[in-house]
C-alpha cells in the first residue's frame, strides 16, 4: 500500500490528505464507547466540520472534539471539507468548559487544511474564535490531549492544539502554512510545494525532534485498527498520568510546554 512506503515530507502531506485516511469520526467510532454527540455553539449555529460529544475511553468519561471532513461528496459539502467556521471553534470551547466543570479529560482530534476562509467566517470573527480558544485552553483546569491525525493546518489546527500532551500519527503533518501557500508566496509557484514541504519541517518526526509533540504513533505496515489501538493505549496512559496532577500543576506544566518553544 502506498501509504506504508511514504518517505519524503510531501508524500507524508499527501498521505495526511488522502481521502481514504480515517478522520475524527473513525476514532470516535472505534475508540469511544457510548458516544453521545453534542451540537452547536449556543451562539449562532452548529458547524459540522467539528464533531464533538461525550463518551467513555475504556471506563473513563471523556469529552471528544474532532475535526471531520466526511466521506461522501454530500457529507463533505455539509462538513465544509473539514474546514471549521467560527461556530465550530466556539462549540469546541463550550464543550471544553463543560468538560472542565465535570472534571472530564478532553481529547481533540486534529485533521483539517485550516480554518475556513470566507466572507461570512470573517464577519462572525474567525480570528477571535481561534484567539479565544488559545486563551481559554491555556487555563482549562482539566487534562487536554491533542492528536494530529491528518493535516494540521496552521491556526485553525492550533485552536484545538493547546494541550498537555501532543500526539501525532506518523503520517500526519502540522504546519504554519500549507506547502502550496508557502511555495506560492516564496517562489510564486505553488507547484514547488514538495520543496516547500521539505523546508517547512512539518512531519511527525520533525516535530518530535523539536519537542513540539511528545509522541508519534507509528503507521508503517499497520492497519487502521492497529493504529487506533496503539493510539488508544497511549491516550489511556496519558490520561491516567495527567489525571494525577493537581489543576495548578497541570496548568503550570501546560504553560511551560509552550513557554519553552523558541525561548
Amino acid at each position: 500500500m502506498a501509504i506504508a512506503d511514504v518517505k519524503t515530507a510531501y508524500e507524508r502531506v499527501q498521505a495526511a490528505r488522502n481521502g481514504k485516511r480515517p478522520m475524527g469520526s473513525y476514532y470516535i467510532e472505534h475508540m469511544i464507547d457510548d458516544f453521545v454527540e453534542l451540537h452547536g455553539d449556543r451562539r449562532f449555529g452548529d458547524d459540522a466540520a467539528i464533531v464533538a460529544g461525550v463518551g467513555y475511553l475504556n471506563r473513563i468519561p471523556v469529552t471528544v472534539i474532532a475535526m471531520e471532513r466526511g466521506d461522501t461528496i454530500e457529507e463533505r459539502m455539509k462538513r465544509n471539507f473539514g474546514c471549521p467556521e467560527p461556530e465550530g471553534y466556539r462549540k469546541a470551547l463550550r464543550l471544553m468548559k463543560e468538560a472542565e466543570k465535570f472534571r472530564r479529560p478532553v481529547i481533540c482530534f486534529i485533521g483539517s487544511s485550516g480554518a475556513y476562509c470566507g466572507i461570512e467566517a470573517e464577519k462572525r470573527g474567525q480570528g477571535l474564535a481561534i484567539a479565544e480558544n488559545l486563551y481559554e485552553m491555556m487555563g482549562l483546569k482539566t487534562p487536554v490531549i491533542s492528536v494530529v491525525v491528518g493535516e494540521g493546518g496552521s491556526g485553525g489546527a492550533l485552536a484545538l492544539g493547546v494541550c498537555d500532551t501532543a500526539i501525532m500519527l506518523e503520517n500526519a503533518v502540522y504546519s504554519v502554512i500549507s506547502p502550496e501557500g508557502c511555495a506560492s508566496i516564496l517562489w510564486k509557484d505553488a507547484s514547488k510545494a514538495p520543496e516547500a514541504a521539505a523546508h517547512l519541517k512539518l512531519t511527525s518526526y520533525d516535530l518530535l525532534k523539536f519537542d513540539v509533540v511528545e509522541k508519534v504513533i507509528p503507521e508503517t505496515g499497520k492497519t487502521d485498527r492497529e493504529i487506533c489501538s496503539a493510539l488508544k493505549a497511549v491516550l489511556m496512559t496519558e490520561i491516567t498520568r495527567l489525571s494525577q496532577m493537581t489543576p495548578e500543576a497541570l496548568l503550570d506544566h501546560r504553560y511551560e510546554k509552550f513557554r519553552k518553544i523558541g525561548g
Partner: peptide, 10 residues
C-alpha cells in the same frame, strides 16, 4: 515553520 505557529499559543 511550526515554531512560529506555536508562538500564538505561547
Amino acid at each position: 515553520g511550526i515554531f512560529s505557529l506555536m508562538q500564538m499559543a505561547k
